[in-house]
């Protein structure tokens, strides 16, 4: 069985995905508005799973909204909040409701979020979750029991091309491929030369790579990420470009930078597509794509 997203990957087109962050609460209107706005511009929409360990409306619920509004969802699934029983059960439910793309993640640490005293689960982690999905596809659960009705998913994972040190990250990337990952959405990249070097390594494997594009909205944000977010490196030239923006125009500059990167990745066929993360600014994703000439 092929999902529309998997078909897009296999067709060899330059694939575009973006992400939807579910709300804290049950007012789903802004999320639905973002889905409506993006659904015809992208090949699939990720729905984040208690992102940054902040409790929200669940990713599974969000993917159903994406389906209902006629778009293709990618279910982000972390191992932080559920043990192997709950993860498998949610995969069965997702499949039953037509949610067939899964991004397997370990999940952020509990202390970075808003429920700092919570018990972290991590019964499984990303590589084991990938194995689990592939195992369910054989018609058995992790307990070795038969499933009444098989499942089939298009399975992805993440990789951090700017990780420091990089070598252990690449080793894990290979383990994820062996575990069955078909596609990767990367952590944000900003230095295309570094990314080209990563792609030289990644090209030896039969997997699709979507470069992570995180919209920069100010020089301050770029500096903050450089100092505080592991695996993110914004080069000085980009920070200077944001700094040089006239007052009130930094967002516009960020859109131009993101668009320019996407255009270069696409025209030079550096990777198989992009995953655009416009954290809190989903409404400008169409502008980013326009700036990329798409």
């Amino acid at each position: 069985m092929s999902t529309a997203f998997k078909q897009a990957l296999e067709d060899g087109k330059f694939v575009v995905t973006s992400e939807i962050g579910p709300p804290k609460g049950v007012n789903l209107d802004p999320m639905k508005h973002h889905i409506e706005l993006l659904k015809d511009r992208v090949d699939a929409l990720n729905v984040t799973d208690n992102q940054s360990s902040v409790m929200r409306f669940p990713s599974l619920g969000g993917t159903l909204n994406v389906k209902e509004l006629g778009a293709e969802p990618i279910l982000q699934m972390t191992c932080r909040d559920r043990n192997r029983l709950a993860l498998q059960a949610d995969l069965l439910f997702a499949y039953s409701r037509g949610v067939r793309n899964v991004l397997c993640l370990t999940g952020d640490a509990v202390p970075v979020g808003d429920h700092k005293q919570a018990k972290a689960v991590f019964d499984l982690e990303s590589v084991q979750l990938l194995h689990t999905v592939r195992h369910l596809e054989t018609g058995k659960d992790l307990g070795g029991n038969d499933l009444d009705g098989p499942v089939e998913f298009c399975v992805g994972a993440i990789v951090t091309p700017e990780a420091d040190p990089l070598e252990p990250q690449l080793l894990k990337f290979e383990k994820k491929i062996q575990a069955g990952a078909e596609f990767f959405q990367t952590q944000a990249i900003y230095d295309l030369n570094n990314f080209r070097a990563f792609m030289d390594f990644a090209r030896q494997f039969e997997v699709k790579i979507l470069a992570g594009i995180v919209l920069l909205v100010s020089a301050r944000m770029a500096r903050y990420m450089n100092a505080n977010v592991p695996g993110i490196f914004v080069p000085d030239e980009l920070i200077a470009e944001l700094e040089a923006a006239p007052k009130g125009e930094a967002l516009k500059t960020g859109i131009r930078i993101a668009g320019r990167m996407i255009r270069e990745l696409r025209e030079e066929k550096i990777c198989d597509g992009v995953h655009i993360m416009a954290i809190g600014k989903e409404e400008v994703v169409p502008d980013i794509l326009a700036a990329a000439g798409m």
Binding site: T106, F122, E125, S126, A163, D164, Q169, K175, P230, G231
Partner: peptide
């Protein structure tokens, strides 16, 4: 974790 570092390694 049993299979290598997460993306939070820095």
């Amino acid at each position: 974790l049993l299979n290598g570092p997460c993306g939070g390694t820095n």
